[in-house]
Each structure stands twice: as structure tokens, then as C-alpha cells.
Amino acid sequence: MTIKAPYALQFDRASVRFPGTATYALENISLQVAPGELLTIVGASGSGKSTLLRCVNRLVELCDGRIEIDGVALESFAIDPLRRTIGYAIQGVGLFAHLTVAENLALVPESLGWPRARIDARIDEMLATVRLDPQIYRRRRPRALSGGQAQRVGIARALMAYPRLLLLDEPFGAVDPILRPQLQAELLGVLRAARTTTLFVTHDVDEALLLGDRIAVIDEGHLRAIGTPRALLDRPPDDFTAELLCGDALLHEYRRARLAVREQSR
């Protein structure tokens, strides 16, 4: 896909080094994300992909470089108001067990001062969007939800207040593999409808290929490659990317064939 400026999100030589460590968790990351784009970030455990995500909502601070949202430097925003404009969902969802589904969904809109009627209407809308009947699920507590339902609620909470950016950190990591494709397809539908710029972290290469408009490959804190799934599968820029995305010849062909099916279905 063609990226048009202004970017929704831009990393400019962004680096992170955690206190007391000699090596960079992220080093000189530069990339841009277009408005409405879904960028999947793929890499091994400990590669720095979650750190990259957490820089955007300032759960992690840069030691060097800068990040811009809609052309404005991240540090220009006050932290809490910035975070209220960025949806965030993690593996295991992070729903608060003592709150009902509706109370979990209402947290950000309440902080934004929305009137009660608007919050209630939006809760119903978002639950319907993630295919959960509001009449049934509004009052449920997280413990009474299945893994897939909890994941849907997590996505709904992240999208409640019309975020300018959505950060998803392995949201389907703990979901039953049988249910995963369905949730992935649903998520794509929801994101296409909302046109929300999204960063999606995963260590599942097939998930990254299936969901991403583009893929960023992270290894040991460095950005190895970034491009469309087709470009990276057809012409991986280095051995690491080739090994990670393409695998052996059989797997490479399988992934290309799956990608072709996905491209046709879009």
C-alpha cells in the first residue's frame, strides 16, 4: 500500500535502553505508519517488539530519537490524556476482574467525561460490533467469559473512545488455536470499519502475514525489514527475514498461496 504523508505515526531513530543494562532494547528504529494502516510487528520473544509498542503510549520512554503522532512529538502530549486517545489490548486482555463488562468498557469514556447515555449507547454498539449480545454480556464479570469472549471485550474496550491509534500486543496469544482464525477475521472487519491506525504485535508469522497491510520484522532491538506481506515474502531483504517469514521451500509456497487467497478476498 502507498503511504501518504502526514503519517499517523512516525518513529525517527527511536532508541530505548532500560536502566542498568548495557545494550539497547531498541536501537535506531525509523518507520512510518499511514492513517488507517494495520502494521503487524513480528519477531521472536525478547526481540523488542512489545517495547516498540509500549513506546507509543509512553509505558516505555525513549532514550534517544523521537516518535510523532499526527506530526506532533509524543512528549508534547500530557501522558494520561495521550493514553486515552490510544487503544491498548494485551495478551490475556487485562480486563479488571472486579468490574463487569460494561464497567470495564466505560473506564476510558468516563475519564473523558462522556455523558452516561452516550457511554451506555457506545457500550451496546461496541458489544454488538464484537458479536456479543449487550443484553447478555453487559453485566457479566470477566471470569464468566470464555477466552474468545474476553478477547472480544478487550478489543471493544480498546476501541470504545474512538482511539486515534490502536496498540495490540499479542491479543490472540492466549486464545484457542481453533478460535483464532475467526477472531482474526472479526478483528480485521472491525478495524476496516473503524479505519483505526493499528500496531499489532505478534510472534506468529502466519498471523502477521494474514492481518498486516505491512509487516515490520524486529530482531534484537533492530528493524530488519518493513514492507507489504507480498514484498517481504517474494523478496526478503536479508537472510534473517527470509528465514523468519519464508521458512523452508514448502512453507514458503504455502504462505504465498495463503497470502494470494487473502489478497483476493480483500
Partner: peptide, 10 residues
């Protein structure tokens, strides 16, 4: 849970 509460901007 603490991190999510912070990330939501509460």
C-alpha cells in the same frame, strides 16, 4: 493490571 490501568490513561 496496574499497567493496563495506566495504559488506559485513567
Amino acid at each position: 493490571q496496574r499497567e493496563v490501568a495506566a495504559a488506559l490513561g485513567l
